[in-house]
Design a protein around this nucleic acid. Structure first.
Lengths: 209, 209, 209, 209
DNA sequence: CATGAATGAGTTTTCATTCAT
DNA sequence: CATGAATGAAAACTCATTCAT
């Protein structure tokens, strides 16, 4: 029994590892070539498995995309929460948030995320399957919304500006998009800092004078 | 001879009209269905010509996209210049600029523009052919850059923030993207006004006090 | 105008010829290999055209089958009517009918017809599309029904046996099926004659004595 | 040793039971979905075993079909012999035979049998493997042949008609086929009776007058 | 010039069969 | 023995592009 249980667990672990590997490589190719120019064949080749094997994990090509986005969002949310806890003010928390979007591991993930989500073709596709993603998207915006409200409360942000507008400006400014390639040529750190600066000035509470 | 010239000219005119019609309809379908789900067949059908005829004007499907973007940018630039001339300050000019992006005839064009340009698949495609677009893009950003610099000069904008950063924030905030669908459900006018508000506060020159 | 009309007509004629050729060859391959083991590729190869060209005429593989059956039935019905007109009695007419099923051109067609119609897989497929075939099937059975009734009237067939039963026995006996391969090894003519003999004795009006 | 033998025997028994179960379920699915639309996966699922296990019993998918037909024929022959023994005349025996084909347990089996055997795709498959079936088919026809000859001897059937012809008519009339669905809507019993009536009149010895 | 029939490479997806565990 | 993950061949179908008419 114990043995069987372990075996099961091992198999399941192997299965999940493989699944992650597929997502990993699929994301890679999607990033390089885009959704339509990526063939299941190529993904399989990159993973080093047969085409059919992918279908054991993901029934359709679009399921792959959804799964990738889902995973990226989950990873992002999990990490961001830990990081946010380490700084005190709403403003600082949002700053951490923004830098997380751009930096480290996430720049790749968020890049795909937003690029694919922005692609009109993909968008339609995702909208159909959005059931499973909606929750995660909301997890994202609710966090930002909460922080913006908190900032207002504490007098950091302007109460005159509606939170929803701030939220929109937030995502508009801090979703890496097509212009990202410009970034690569310069110091991204610096650029992000500048954008953060502008954003917080834009929503700052009016100075007392 | 003269006659022949006129005939030639007429033909040429007809040719250009048809070309415009193709672009018109192609843009329409691309907007509705996305690049990959749009077939040359359907474009031809909407124009009311044969598939092959499109190829007399545009050698490949992607050339169509490039031509559309090119045309949209040209139209946009021409119109924007006229509109900008009507208001005095840099800030007002930029505001006109921004509203032009979102409103009226252009909302459709810029929507396509940015959506397609954001689509990772399309982006690669365009990058290859960007030669012909680079000029127009620069026309766009040079205008904004100029206005930003002018605003700095006149003490409207903060000289501490580099113009390039302001430019980036400008395009980040004012490129309609996937979240546009949210817009449709509310008052877009209002949203744009809010974003403008935030932006100009973000880059405003520090108050004297 | 006249010219254009002729051109149109020529093209249409060419189109129909090609369509017939496809049906011809498709039927051939279906007969040889069966529905599932026949690839569009092979049909195309036999016709000497590209795979895609078939799809210009028939949107799906099953449409091909339906079209074949349709054509075969039409040809059969047209020919049978002419032949039936030449003999006087109901019994003779039915005999002509039966021989037509087995002989000459039709043996091939009816063979496919019944074989495919009998195949459980194909049957399901056809049932879905049967709209277009039902009329033809009824054309077939109504003719036989009519002749059987006429034969009863004239005292050739037994009025005690319901026409529907006679009809059923008719199609049971005279639909070439799997055992046809036995036929090939002997004299089919003779066998058909024997079956006809049995059938008509089976449904004959009781002798007066 | 003895023990080992018993164990072996038990295992063997278990093995055979499982084999029968596979055949049972496979027949079920084949009947429902047809050969090509039935996957090994589904058969396995219905049996409650793994896909691979089927292959321990049957090397290929088509072997399954052959085995099913084989089993059905064997069952049929065994049962029919017992039933035939209970009635005296050749005609009555044949009638029992015919009703057995249509009724009770066998309707299902013979339905599959004939449907699959009629399916042109399947036919080819079976022809290749017919070695193992030929014997059983002959068991079937030899019984009918024997009864037909006996009937002739006893003056029940017409000696003018060759036995082989009678045999053919027999199988033609009494093999349930595609039109079986008509049967379901009416009283099958009655229809069979009518067909039997026609058949025996068709091959009856001429009345003395 | 305009047409649209023809092409055929390329894609997703399925599933019988194998074989390491 | 039993399993079921992995394989990869095969097939239907699409559509940008070409080119004879």
């Amino acid at each position: 029994m114990q043995e069987a249980y372990v075996a099961q667990s091992l198999k399941e672990k192997h299965r999940q590892e493989r699944e992650m590997l597929i997502l990993e490589k699929a994301e890679e190719v999607f990033l390089e070539k885009g959704y339509y120019d990526t063939s299941m064949e190529e993904i399989a080749a990159r993973v080093g498995i047969a085409k059919g094997t992918i279908y054991l994990h993901f029934a359709r090509k679009d399921d792959l995309v959804v799964a990738i986005i889902q995973r990226d969002l989950e990873i992002f949310l999990n990490t961001i929460d830990a990081q946010i806890a380490l700084v005190p003010t709403a403003r600082e928390k949002l700053e951490v948030f923004i830098r997380a979007i751009y930096s480290g591991l996430f720049s790749k993930h968020t890049y795909l995320l937003s690029n694919m989500y922005n692609a009109i073709d993909i968008k339609r596709m995702i909208e159909e399957k959005q059931g499973c993603l909606r929750g995660l998207w909301e997890g994202l915006s609710s966090r930002v919304t909460y922080l913006l409200d908190e900032g207002k409360e504490w007098g950091e942000f302007d109460k005159q500006i509606s939170t929803i507008t701030m939220l929109r400006a937030f995502f508009a400014l801090f979703t890496p998009r097509s212009y990202i390639h410009i970034y690569k040529q310069e110091n991204p750190e610096e650029i992000v800092t500048s954008l953060i600066h502008i954003y917080f000035r834009g929503i700052a509470a009016p100075s007392p004078c």
